[in-house]
Design a protein around this nucleic acid. Sequence first.
DNA 1: TATAAAACTTCCAGTAACTGGCAGGTCAAG
DNA 2: CTTGACCTGCCAGTTACTGGAAGTTTTATA
Lengths: 128, 128
Amino acid sequence: MNVRDAAARSGLPAKTIRYYDDIGLVVPDRRANGYRDYNDQTVQKLAFLKRARQLGFSIDNCRQLLSLYEDKGRASGDVKSLAEKHLIEVDKRLEELQQLRATLSHLVHSCRGDDRPDCPILADLSKD
Amino acid sequence: MNVRDAAARSGLPAKTIRYYDDIGLVVPDRRANGYRDYNDQTVQKLAFLKRARQLGFSIDNCRQLLSLYEDKGRASGDVKSLAEKHLIEVDKRLEELQQLRATLSHLVHSCRGDDRPDCPILADLSKD
DNA sequence: TATAAAACTTCCAGTAACTGGCAGGTCAAG
DNA sequence: CTTGACCTGCCAGTTACTGGAAGTTTTATA
């Protein structure tokens, strides 16, 4: 199966699939003409990656998840541990973003937003 | 004032300050020996940038904010408009992250995380 | 069968916002 | 007068792709 079809089936752009080949994440067979040749298994891995990336796992984490995915004797604890670490980071980012949002929202509401130059937003940004 | 002192006063790393000079964001005077020479005004701008970056404004937005900051005849509405746009993007990102967190958390809790290989997390990642 | 279109290949550059590191020049202190 | 701290510019690396160019191969149509 050519890269275009693998893209259609996995939901990833062809360009991304080639990139995953370049970095050794999902390496397809090659035909005599040099074209990449994907099969059910490699397409499955691509779909796996798409979902894992959507969940915010880094490429590096995806690499580990993928190797666990392929290891039929894995311990589910290893997978859970990876996911938990990721969850903690997501929570951290969420808190930061919520804090940021609160400050920003406060600033926006404090500014009249008219034609006059005095602006609490700029005042806050320039405060020590 | 040398870049080191400007760093100490603004709270930004010296490297970042040089970078801001490179991209024309805050351009200091130069001494005869070629050293950057910061004054109260440029340090003030650096501090402004630090705060704006902390609030998640992009460098590009910072450039606009900075020019509004310097424009004593500005309309506060222009500042508010920028901030509002940014707030909308933050809200979007927050929603995405919350959705992601919910899914991830659900997956984590569904996995026993023991020595056995069967794992709902991997099962979910590989589902169509 | 000729040819044009589409799809494939590799490689290079660009994105955002820095950060690290190197070679070399400068300056203050002992 | 030397040592060490600081400065300079410049190039590379980071993350995870994405766009584009140049060249080859396959496929579809006339």
